Each structure stands twice: as C-alpha cells, then as structure tokens.
Simulated assay, not measured.
Amino acid sequence: MDASEEVAPAVQSILSAARERGGGDERVAVDAESLPAAFADAEADGRVPVIAEVKPTSPTTEGERTDDPVALAEQMVEGGAAALSVLTEPEHFGGSPENLTKIREAVDVPVLRKDFVLREEQLDTVEADVVLLIARFVGDDLADLLAAARDRGFQVLVEVHDRDELTRALDAGAAVVGVNNRDLTKLEVDLATFEEVAPAVPEDVTLIAESGISTPDDVVRMREAGADGLLVGSAIMDGSVRENTESLTRAGSQVEDT
C-alpha cells in the first residue's frame, strides 16, 4: 500500500524521508517502564494521564522551540505528565534519537518514541519504553512489526484514524491504541474522530486520544468519550511548559471512566 498517495503533501514528504532512513547498527533490547501503570499512578494521584510531547517544531505549527529538550521534559514531569513523547524525526520535527536518550535518562516516567517507523531495522535506532506504529503507513506489515517491537522489549502504541484501521490494529494484537484526531489528507483536526472510534475499542485495550487537545474542556470531552490517556504536543509546547501541563493534567480529573 502506498499511503503517500492518500495524504497531504507535508505528510508525503515525511514518509519519503522515513523511507530513506536506516536503523541502528545493533539490535536493541529494552527494559521498558509500563505505560498503563504510569496512567494508573496518575489516576491514583488525581491527575489526568497525559503524555506530554517534546516537539521542537512540526509541519502544522509555526516557529521552533529551541529550549533544552531535557529541561522541557523535566518541566512536563513537574507539571504532572504521566509519560513523555519525544520526537526523533529530524527533518520535519527537529527531533533526534540523542534527545530521547538524554530525556529518558533524566526522567522517571515512560518515554514514547514518536517517529515514522516503516521497517523492522528502524526499531533499532534508540531505546525507548514505547514505540509508535502508524497503522495506515505500515499496512500489512503491522502484525510483524508489532511482534518485532515486543520481542525487543518495547511497548507499542498503534495509531489509527478510523474504525477500519482499528480493526486491523486489534487483529494484529494491539494492546495500546491511539486515535489520531488529525485528518492526514487535509491536516484538519476534529475531536469527533475519537468519539466515533472509541466505542469500538475493547475495555482491556489502553486507549489514547491524540491531536487537537488544546484546552481543559477538550480534556474533559476526550475523557468522557473513553480516553484512558491523552497525547498532547502543541498545547503544552506553546508557552509555559510546566503551567500548560499542569492545567491539562488537572482538568476533569474526576471524570468517570466510560
């Protein structure tokens, strides 16, 4: 499947660059921190489980955040983030595997590697607690990549955009699913995407809402729709990182699971 034919030009460019990147020289082995356990700890502490994203820039944002990524990560954790997402894609997001390594050494929460992994060898780029696989982009290789990632010790966040992709993710054995509210064709965000997909997710699957979560009201909306956790990037990176994280992790913390 050539997913690049179905997405916006900016995403086509990202995929083209991802196809050209190789992997590490050696197979990695990871002793991962548990993401579901981190979510449970946040809940027990009265916090919304938020994965705060260290994202220097992106095709859908203006400008670039040039702060020390480790300092940003530490502020996110101080603000209550249950876990972190770190961009390792260099050309379009300003990330790097080196940043992830430094951040993971500095914090005591699970760290997700946010990148566009298309081949097994790309799993060996850097150690992380969780790795992202985007169902639309890996196509029929999803089950094999999921197994390869777990064999290395990674937890896997499988990202989907609709119910068809959700079905493929569940059939492949996904235990953690993220629903991305961003339409990859027009790059528009609609929180109703999560609300459409969430009811089809089994209760034993950890469910994460991704993209477009900007305000405490958005947090409450996604939690009421069934989100176990939220992945938030721009709304935290834009301004005071600690204060923004705290605002979202304290929003609607008493919302009942649905």
Rank of each mutant, 00 (worst) to 15 (best):
T88A: 07
K114P: 06
R163H: 10
R168C: 08
G80C: 06
V28I: 15
S16F: 09
S58C: 03
D183R: 08
E89M: 06
G23T: 14
E33Q: 13
A3C: 11
L230D: 00
T60Y: 00
L146E: 12
V205S: 02
A143P: 02
Q155Y: 12
F137R: 06
E89G: 00
D162P: 05
D2C: 12
D204W: 03
A3E: 12
T101F: 04
E256K: 11
E43F: 02
V28R: 12
P202V: 13
E196T: 15
E5I: 12
D41F: 04
D68W: 06
R168E: 15
A82H: 10
E120D: 06
A128P: 02
R150V: 11
D257I: 12
D25E: 13
D31S: 11
I236K: 01
D164S: 15
V177N: 00
L166C: 10
E165Y: 03
V241D: 03
E64L: 02
A71N: 10
G63P: 11
G233I: 09
G233L: 00
R152T: 09
F116P: 06
M222K: 04
V126F: 02
K186H: 12
A128L: 11
T125F: 00
V11R: 11
E6S: 15
L118P: 02
K102C: 07
V7W: 09
G79N: 05
D129I: 12
T167A: 14
A37N: 02
V70A: 11
V176P: 06
E33K: 15
E91F: 06
G178H: 08
E74A: 01
R250Q: 03
A73T: 11
F39W: 12
T249Q: 07
T60A: 06
Q12R: 15
L231H: 04
E120G: 02
T61W: 04
D238C: 04
D129K: 08
L15I: 14
S34K: 05
V107Y: 04
A44M: 07
G94A: 04
D108S: 13
A148Y: 14
K186I: 15
A209S: 10
E165S: 07
L146R: 13
A200V: 08
E159K: 09
D171T: 15
R27L: 05
E26P: 08
A29C: 07
V7H: 10
T60P: 05
G229I: 05
D164H: 14
E89S: 05
A148P: 07
E210K: 00
G63I: 15
D108N: 12
P69Q: 11
E74I: 09
R19A: 14
R19Y: 09
A44W: 10
E256I: 13
L112G: 04
G24Y: 11
A83T: 09
G229V: 04
P90D: 10
D45F: 10
L112C: 09
I103Q: 08
R168G: 09
A71P: 01
V219E: 04
N180V: 14
A81W: 03
G139E: 05
V11Q: 09
L231W: 02
D2W: 11
V130C: 00
A18R: 13
A169I: 14
V197M: 06
L112E: 12
